[in-house]
Simulated assay, not measured.
Amino acid sequence: MASNSDLSISCADPLLTEAQAAHLLALKQTTLQQWRIRGTGPAYIKLGAAAVRYRRSTLETWLNDRTVHSTVDDVPQRIREAAFAQAGGGFTTAASYRAGLPLAGSPAAALAMAADEGARA
């Protein structure tokens, strides 16, 4: 039997039905269903053959992990790296772009390395 402390934990982080989770995320239930089929979307709990629940904290974390600050952040890193490498160099991530750090192996990185070695000589 669950103790009172176990019950208070579950009340603090309630399990939401698919309909409640969809409402919280401002999505259709069918979107959540498709994401589960594809293996994407927020993690869920399977309670039976058809009973699916979502932890509220999991949904909030999932949303927070998808917050972007610019369109550069919205493009997957592998696509950015491929595009910059194809163009002859560039930056690996939005953070390195803002910091001015060149893509390893790019012409800009080679120049930076040469300048650093020259400064040490």
Rank of each mutant, 00 (worst) to 15 (best):
A110S: 13
Y44R: 06
G105E: 00
V75M: 11
S5R: 15
Y44H: 11
A43Y: 11
A112R: 09
H23K: 15
M1Q: 07
L15E: 07
T31P: 05
A114L: 10
H23T: 12
Q33C: 12
A43F: 15
A26N: 11
L7R: 12
R120Y: 04
S8L: 09
A49T: 14
A85D: 04
A49H: 10
G41F: 02
N4F: 07
E18L: 09
A50D: 14
R53K: 07
D74L: 11
A19Q: 07
A110V: 12
P76E: 02
A99G: 04
A115P: 06
S57V: 00
K28S: 14
A119D: 09
K46N: 11
E117M: 14
A115M: 10
E60I: 08
S57I: 01
F91S: 05
M113L: 15
W35H: 08
L24P: 01
I79W: 04
R36S: 05
A104G: 08
L101Y: 09
T30C: 13
V68R: 15
A12T: 04
A21Q: 00
M113G: 14
G48C: 08
L101D: 12
V75K: 07
S96I: 02
T71F: 10
A12D: 00
T67E: 13
A110I: 10
T40R: 03
A19R: 07
Q20D: 06
Q29G: 08
I45N: 09
G90C: 04
A26L: 06
A115L: 12
A104V: 14
R56A: 08
A51S: 15
G105Q: 00
L103H: 02
V75P: 02
G39N: 06
R80A: 01
S5V: 13
A83L: 11
D6V: 08
Q77E: 15
P107L: 11
T17C: 00
M1F: 05
L25T: 03
A26Y: 07
L47Q: 12
L63Q: 09
R38N: 13
S70T: 04
V72N: 07
T30V: 13
R38I: 03
L16F: 01
G118V: 07
L59E: 03
G100C: 02
M113P: 05
G90N: 04
L101H: 09
T40L: 06
T71Q: 11
G89E: 03
A22G: 03
A115Q: 11
G48S: 15
H23I: 05
I37F: 10
D13M: 01
I45T: 13
S8D: 10
A22H: 00
L27G: 00
S3H: 14
N64D: 14
T92Y: 15
A110C: 08
S106A: 04
A110F: 10
A49F: 06
A114Q: 07
